[in-house]
């Protein structure tokens, strides 16, 4: 075993520059993130090397900043609502693409997936025109509709991938044993898809929390967090933004770790 591994390693074309290249790319990817975090503790503000006067002042200021926390709350609200919409329509859409034939299926597939690859500005503008035509006042609700619709693409791709791996015989067995379609759906199909659904939900949640191009056009009076940050950036740089970004980064890291733990626990039983 050991020998064959070594042999395999030797047959692969490689270069001693590859590890160095990898180090350079990682440095490039992490430089802004490290800078962001370091300068959230920098007493004399953002910029200026070396960082000096370590302080928690920016965090203190952040916690007293009601506008930011309102926008965080708005963002959470939007993300959960968008998640509900995308899953409610994305799961059936994936099922339909997997197991139903209907006229316009190819067009439907393209249309559902389009917001994933289309620059957000086009989806945002188009929806703005729709709401304008329907006399819908812009508010958090329009942002929810925008995110929910754009992110159906994510729910559909994730769940569709899950369906491809699904063992169809379980559903057949359930139907043969006298369960009707709905019982089969709730008791067999959905539980088998739960990892794809949780994965999709997490992805939708983070994408919505970070979304700005679509929200940019659909915003009413209440800001989401990215738009609040955007508004402040236009006025100038403040380390408060570093502080809030650092906190959110740490939360996201915790979420990824939890997700992988969850999947590592669930995967063995999936294999069985």
């Amino acid at each position: 075993m050991e020998l064959s591994m070594n042999q395999r390693e030797r047959t692969v074309p490689t270069s001693r520059w590859l590890p160095w290249h990898a180090i350079v790319v990682f440095a490039f990817l992490y430089l802004p993130i490290v800078t962001l975090i370091v300068y959230s503790f920098n007493g004399s503000g953002v910029g200026g090397f070396p960082p000096r006067d370590l302080t928690l002042n920016w965090y203190r200021q952040l916690f007293a900043d009601d506008a930011i926390w309102t926008s965080v709350l708005n963002s959470l609200l939007v993300a959960f609502a968008a998640m509900a919409i995308s899953l409610a329509f994305g799961i059936p859409a994936a099922l339909a693409l997997d197991r139903a034939n209907f006229p316009g299926k190819a067009l439907f597939r393209r249309l559902v997936l389009l917001p994933l690859i289309l620059p957000g500005i086009i989806t945002g503008l188009s929806l703005l025109m729709l709401f304008q035509a329907g006399n819908v006042k812009l508010s958090l609700l329009t942002i929810v509709l925008g995110h929910g619709t754009a992110l159906i693409s994510v729910a559909t791709t994730e769940v569709f991938a899950g369906l491809q791996k699904l063992d169809r015989t379980q559903e057949e067995a359930s139907l043969d044993l006298g369960a009707n379609y709905w019982q089969t759906f709730w008791r067999v199909t959905l539980p088998n898809l739960r990892l794809s659904i949780i994965g999709a939900a997490l992805l939708i949640f983070t994408l919505s929390m970070d979304e700005i191009a679509v929200s940019f056009f659909l915003i009413g009076r209440d800001n989401t967090l990215p738009l609040e940050i955007w508004g402040r950036l236009r006025r100038g740089i403040t380390p408060e933004i570093n502080a809030i970004s650092t906190i959110i980064f740490i939360f996201s890291l915790a979420a990824i770790v939890t997700w992988y733990r969850l999947r590592a626990k669930a995967e063995p039983e999936l294999i069985l």
């Binding site: 430089l31 970004s245 980064f249 990824i256």
Partner: peptide, 14 residues
């Protein structure tokens, strides 16, 4: 997982 906007902002500060 770090916001797109925040990373653009970080480059601005760099």
């Amino acid at each position: 997982w770090v916001s797109y906007l925040v990373r653009a902002y970080a480059w601005k500060t760099i």
